[in-house]
Amino acid sequence: MLTFILKRMCLMFIVILGVTMMTFLIMHFTPGDPAEMIAMARYGVDDLTQEDIEWIRVQEGLDAPLHIQYIKWLNHAIHGDLGCSLINGQPVLSEILVRFPATIKLAAVSMLVALIIAIPVGIISATRQYSLTDNVSMMGAMLGVSMPNFWLGLLLILLFSVHLGWFPVCGYGGFEYIILPALTLGTGMAAITTRLTRSSMLEVLRQDYIRTARAKGLSEKVVISKHALKNALIPIVTVIGMQFGRVLEGAVIIETIFAWPGIGKLLVDSIYARDFAMIQGGVLFVAVIFVIVNLVVDISYTYLDPRIRYEGVK
């Protein structure tokens, strides 16, 4: 298991390197002179001079060739220094660490919402294939998949905050603040996971070992919960890992809509301001989290499926 984890760490490093390179390139090819944007953000548009812009360009190292800029940044990053915000001079890392708990909280609650809906509904759908319950939940899932979540978010705000006044419109605070954004993020994921749970369960229920379990006289409840579910969970767990990436991605929009002070909102604000250091740091951080979650998923397979054993360890 240790060799497996070490190997995966090497691969993770390559993935993350690729991500930072891509972000760096994309950032520098976006239209607009970064030095000018930063100068505007710092000194305002009115009394901006060409000298100020040039001064910032030299100051922030934006005059060096791209690859030199990248290597410089990388060298610092490897030593744990993500630099300082180009706009307000705050260290990037501390800014991210302040925002990070909010995003994790939102992501975790959204996933929880998704799983609480998806797994029971998927199982019921599979055990009553083509029944009314099945058709209704599959229609619901279709709706959930096709709805863009920023739109759903706005609808939820309209209904529950503006008309009914049950929850605050936006902001960060107690439990009541997280419900709407988590619901928005969670439903899309629940929809996909429900469909997957259903099809995975249907596949498992056709297997010979389910018939063996029934032949022992086990009740349908035990057959489903003990014999079928664990087998059906294997593909579901894979997708949950990848869905986590979608949650982080969705958080960028949802956090903006709900003014949720997480990394997503931080990234959006930084992109508007062309705060390269902050964008680069934020994307790196999100990529690391995503890769770690997927490593955890891979390790959890060994607990779900005893046939999977990673090299060298039984």
């Binding site: 297997q207 070992y209 063996t212 379990a213 032949a215 003990k226 014999h227 664990k230 499926d305 046939r307």
Partner: peptide
């Protein structure tokens, strides 16, 4: 009942 093909007739995760 004893089934044919014991590999597929036994639950792989138990």
């Amino acid at each position: 009942m004893i089934f044919q093909n014991p590999l597929s007739s036994m639950n792989p995760v138990l």
